[in-house]
Every structure is written in C-alpha cells, then in structure tokens.
C-alpha cells in the first residue's frame, strides 16, 4: 500500500477522516479473519470463546497518507453499532489498531517474538483522540510505551466507522519503537475489535498477514 505524501497538510486534517486529504486517498480492501481460538493466550479465554465467533468485522478499507512528519492510517468498516463507552461491565468499545514490525520478519500472529518486537498503534472508541503505543515480543508481552504519541479519531455514521490513527514518523523515545521516513518501505497489519461482540485483547479480527507499506517520498507527489 502506498502512503501518499500530502504536502503541508496540518495534523488536524490528517486526523479528520472527513477532511480534504482523505478525499483523494483510495482505500484498499483488506480482508480480516478472527484470531484463532487456539491461539488465544490463556485457557480461560479459549474456554470462553470455544463456541463463539471471533472476528465480527470481516473486512476493512485501509488507506494512509503522510505529510512528511506525521503518518496517518485510515480504516473504514461496516458496523451496525457504535460502541464508544465501556458503559456497563459487560460493554466493550470498538477499537482498531495498526501494527508495524520493529524488526523485519517479526511474526504477526504472535504479535512479535523475543527480540523481534512489533509496534502497535491503538485507537479505542472510548478514548477517541488519545491513542496508545504498544510494544510486544510475543503473546501476553504487550507493554504500553506511551499514550501521547499516537493520536486517533473515529466517526461513526450510517453504520460505518471511519477511523484515523496517526503518529509522527520519527519520534524521540527511549523505547525501540518504529521510526519511519518518507520513501521507506516496511510492512503493516491491521486489527479491528467489535465491542458488541465483546472483542478485546487477543479476541479480534486481523489482517492475517503483513502487507507492504511504501511511504511516498516527501519530495515529489501531491499536494492538497
């Protein structure tokens, strides 16, 4: 997937799925699969989900842009219910994430492996604009690095989510998070949690495999 360069686009625009830059971005369809119950990290989760369908969202439209400093992913998907609140104890919010390997070849399905970390950028409906950046090196190892660098915003309308997740491409961090630059190539994956199906944690729909991600150089390409 090509990440278009949009010169001079302010971050506010990038974070607004209805804003100008996104109109020109063509979204790609990405099929999602539920994480296999057998791969759920704990017996209790496996027992709870043994007879329940994991992965209520089966496809998502994905696109991305950058303005030379900030990269933003756009995820759109059909969803009959807007689940933004934790509300009752039994309620879970809709959520989405973008994952990028820190080390090339890190396994996706186990969310990395020892010494093969992956970097995940989360958005969750209950804390709309505040994203979360996580590192993991295998199932159950996820560790929140910060809740400041990743920002997001979602709009639910007419049975459809439009969600943006953004992060500066280069960040100053003591942690070994992904550093990106225009013109680079890497991979990414996406995941979507359907709150009304009690999806959270490892119980989610994801893109199944890494997909290529090409960041357009900042020099050429488009402008708003």
């Amino acid at each position: 997937m090509l990440v278009n360069f949009v010169r001079g686009a302010p971050v506010e625009w990038l974070l607004d799925p209805d804003a100008e830059p996104w109109r020109k971005v063509s979204l790609e369809r990405v099929a999602l699969v539920g994480t296999p119950v057998g791969l759920q990290p704990t017996p209790a989760i496996r027992a709870a989900w043994a007879n329940k369908h994991i992965g209520a969202v089966s496809e998502v439209q994905v696109g991305a842009v950058h303005n030379g400093e900030v990269i933003a992913f756009r995820l759109d998907w059909q969803d009959g219910s807007e689940n933004r609140e934790l509300g009752d104890t039994t309620a879970f919010p809709d959520a989405a994430a973008v994952m990028i390997p820190v080390v090339a070849g890190a396994p996706l399905i186990t969310m990395g492996a020892p010494n093969q970390p992956v970097n995940t950028w989360y958005w969750r409906g209950d804390s709309d604009t505040q994203g979360r950046q996580v590192l993991s090196e295998g199932i159950g190892t996820t560790r929140t690095v910060d809740q400041t660098l990743v920002r997001g915003h979602g709009i639910w309308k007419d049975g459809r989510w439009k969600v943006v997740i953004a992060r500066p491409m280069k960040v100053t961090s003591a942690e070994k998070v992904v550093q990106l630059a225009p013109g680079e190539k890497t991979q990414f994956a996406v995941a979507v949690w359907e709150g009304s199906n009690s999806e959270r944690g490892g119980v989610k729909a994801f893109s199944g495999s890494w997909r290529d991600l090409v960041l357009a150089p900042a020099a050429d390409g488009g402008k708003v």
Binding site: A44, A47, A48, T89, T90, S198
Partner: peptide, 13 residues
C-alpha cells in the same frame, strides 16, 4: 480445565 464464565453487569452487583 478452565471453564467459560459470564460477566456480571453493574446491575448484578
């Protein structure tokens, strides 16, 4: 063997 469990609601509490 771990058994599936239910989540109580706030009202249940």
């Amino acid at each position: 063997v771990a058994q599936a469990g239910k989540l109580p609601t706030r009202q249940d509490f």
